[in-house]
Structures are given as C-alpha cells and as structure tokens.
C-alpha cells in the first residue's frame, strides 16, 4: 500500500507526539512534524501531503496564516486540514473553518477522535 503522508504542525512536542501516536494506527502512514507555521510551510513546499494537522497558537507563524497560505497554493489547495484547538477557543475554530479547514479536534487529545477524523477525511474504512 502506498504511504499516507501526514504533516503535524504544532509547537508543543508533547502534543505532536500524542497526535503522532494516534495517527500511527493508520496502516502505511508516514508522519512529518513541524514546530511552527513557517517550518510547516517549508515542509509543505518540499513534498506532497495527504493531510495536515495544525495548531492555531504557534510562534513565528500561526495556524490561521498557514491555512490561508495553503489554500491559496494551487498545488496544495485540496489537502484536508484539521485544526487543533482548545475546548474554549470557539472563535479560533470558526475562523479556521472559514479559512478552509475541514475539521477540528479539541484538547485534551482523544486518540479515537483523531483517528476518526483522519480516516473520514482520508476516506479509509
């Protein structure tokens, strides 16, 4: 089976590892991690991803900016984007969805929720 390439853009290493662990349940998945929006953008320009998970609050470049730049890029337009937000940050979530994010997950991280969202967007049964 061909690899499924997933990018996780998140400044907290703990969060990155938690999300990465959940996603590794998907067969043939390959995970790339980035620590902020600029790092994420660099990685996006270097290779093609099947899905992107991104935090909103990050140094250097935040998740909202990253989403809008990805959606403007003709090569990346269609890639599913999932935002990672806190339960309370409803405004961030709405803005992210308005900018073109496909779905969101809230902290605390629930491995099953991550898997469900990923499988649904990747159309894996």
């Amino acid at each position: 089976m061909a690899d499924i390439n997933i990018l996780i853009v998140e400044d907290s290493p703990t969060m990155r590892q938690l999300i990465s662990f959940a996603l590794k349940r998907i067969r043939g998945v390959r995970i790339v991690e980035a620590g902020d929006g600029v790092d994420g953008l660099k990685k996006i320009s270097a290779e093609k991803f099947d899905m992107i998970f991104t935090d909103i609050n990050m140094p250097v470049m935040d998740g909202l900016k990253l989403i809008s730049l990805v959606r403007e890029d003709a090569n990346q337009k269609g890639v599913p984007i999932v935002v990672i937000t806190t339960e309370g940050a409803q405004e961030d979530r709405q803005r992210a969805l308005a900018l073109g994010a496909n779905d969101y997950i809230t902290k605390p991280i629930q491995p099953n929720r991550i898997l469900d969202v990923a499988k649904q967007l990747l159309k894996i049964v």
């Binding site: 907290s12 703990t14 969060m15 590892q17 938690l18 662990f21 902290k107 605390p108 991280i109």
Partner: peptide, 26 residues
Amino acid sequence: IASYQLHSTLDFREVLQIIMEIVINL
C-alpha cells in the same frame, strides 16, 4: 509520551510547561 517528554529537557520552565500539558491532555 509523558515520561519521554518529561525527561526531554533540563530547563525548569520547559519541564513545568510539559507537566501542565500532560495534566491537561492525559
């Protein structure tokens, strides 16, 4: 993940930050 992250740094502030994240998320 918790033990891996907790022992990934020797910076006191970072350790506190990691503990906070673990308590929130785990």
